[in-house]
Measured scan of single mutants.
Amino acid sequence: MSIQHFRVALIPFFAAFCLPVFAHPETLVKVKDAEDQLGARVGYIELDLNSGKILESFRPEERFPMMSTFKVLLCGAVLSRVDAGQEQLGRRIHYSQNDLVKYSPVTEKHLTDGMTVRELCSAAITMSDNTAANLLLTTIGGPKELTAFLHNMGDHVTRLDRWEPELNEAIPNDERDTTMPAAMATTLRKLLTGELLTLASRQQLIDWMEADKVAGPLLRSALPAGWFIADKSGASERGSRGIIAALGPDGKPSRIVVIYTTGSQATMDERNRQIAEIGASLIKHW
């Protein structure tokens, strides 16, 4: 058993032996400061991975655009179909130039040979490839079927209504393609630790998130040596930015963190910096 498999397999085991986890309101002070700095709403939640207890939250039940963070949920739905014998990670999917949409750094290189379902999930999560996400959405029946999958998990909040890139429109008060921090954190925890997916599929999902290559300026920039993080970021119109993550010290995840912001006029660099500073406060007061 690899170190990674050891880590995921023991998450339920550690729940019975973990020390009490204490919240630190200092992080919420930073979240509120980020709102002031960005001139935008910020949603935040910090969840204990083992118990599911909410440690801190700010606007946990307000809607925010999901942006590309939905791609983790999408690959969770794909893995659920794999577990049920309805899909194979090794199945190759062929597509054409007409299928390519904006920001497809991986799929645009494989027009001649296509990509496997496994490769598409990797591209969608680690590189946020939009065509990969659309191709995967097609395999499960489209955005409405992803919403149905989430409903069956008990998440009646999170919804996907459109495809890439239209889902990134982020119109104020538009509930399409949105979630709430509390709903996203709970759903992510179920995917990573619950019985919905097999152990192998849970491991695969967290491996893809751990290999994320496009979230460096966010929480990863504040991470001390030896800490673990598996994450997925997102960005969209109207100053929207977000990240969902499982992270913790000693090389294993122990908390879920979800951060969303929307409605800012700030630059992408400034949005990144504010999220990184929230992460730094979280780690300092861990």
Rank of each mutant, 00 (worst) to 15 (best):
276 A>E: 08
47 L>G: 02
43 G>K: 00
138 T>R: 13
257 V>M: 05
152 N>S: 15
253 P>T: 05
238 R>Q: 14
251 G>D: 08
225 A>Y: 11
126 T>S: 15
197 L>Y: 03
72 V>G: 01
168 N>R: 02
11 I>Y: 15
175 E>W: 09
47 L>E: 05
249 P>T: 05
269 D>M: 10
251 G>A: 08
111 L>P: 07
174 D>H: 03
98 N>K: 14
134 N>H: 03
72 V>S: 04
188 L>G: 02
245 A>Q: 03
198 T>V: 07
269 D>E: 14
92 R>S: 08
146 L>Y: 00
42 V>D: 00
6 F>V: 12
211 A>F: 07
257 V>G: 00
276 A>C: 11
19 L>V: 15
152 N>Y: 10
57 S>W: 09
209 M>I: 15
83 D>Y: 02
212 D>E: 05
68 S>R: 02
172 P>T: 09
67 M>S: 05
275 I>P: 02
97 Q>K: 15
152 N>A: 14
66 M>F: 06
177 D>P: 00
103 Y>N: 07
95 Y>C: 01
126 T>N: 06
44 Y>W: 02
213 K>D: 10
166 E>T: 09
65 P>E: 04
91 R>P: 00
271 R>Q: 12
33 D>N: 13
10 L>I: 15
278 I>K: 02
254 S>T: 15
249 P>G: 03
173 N>W: 11
88 Q>G: 09
41 R>G: 03
121 C>L: 05
117 V>G: 03
130 N>I: 00
163 W>L: 08
235 A>S: 12
184 M>L: 05
238 R>V: 14
166 E>H: 12
164 E>R: 03
234 G>V: 00
175 E>S: 10
62 E>V: 07
100 L>K: 04
146 L>S: 02
89 L>T: 04
176 R>A: 06
127 M>W: 13
273 R>K: 14
216 G>R: 08
75 C>L: 03
59 R>Q: 04
55 L>V: 08
205 L>V: 04
247 L>W: 06
193 T>N: 12
260 Y>C: 03
180 M>W: 09
6 F>C: 13
226 G>W: 03
85 G>C: 08
130 N>R: 00
16 A>T: 15
40 A>I: 06
137 L>Y: 07
283 I>Q: 05
19 L>M: 15
132 A>V: 03
266 A>H: 07
10 L>W: 09
276 A>V: 09
152 N>C: 11
184 M>A: 05
87 E>W: 02
44 Y>P: 01
228 F>R: 05
203 Q>K: 15
25 P>Q: 10
57 S>L: 06
268 M>G: 05
281 S>A: 13
124 A>R: 00
193 T>S: 14
87 E>T: 05
217 P>V: 08
232 K>M: 02
153 M>S: 11
19 L>S: 15
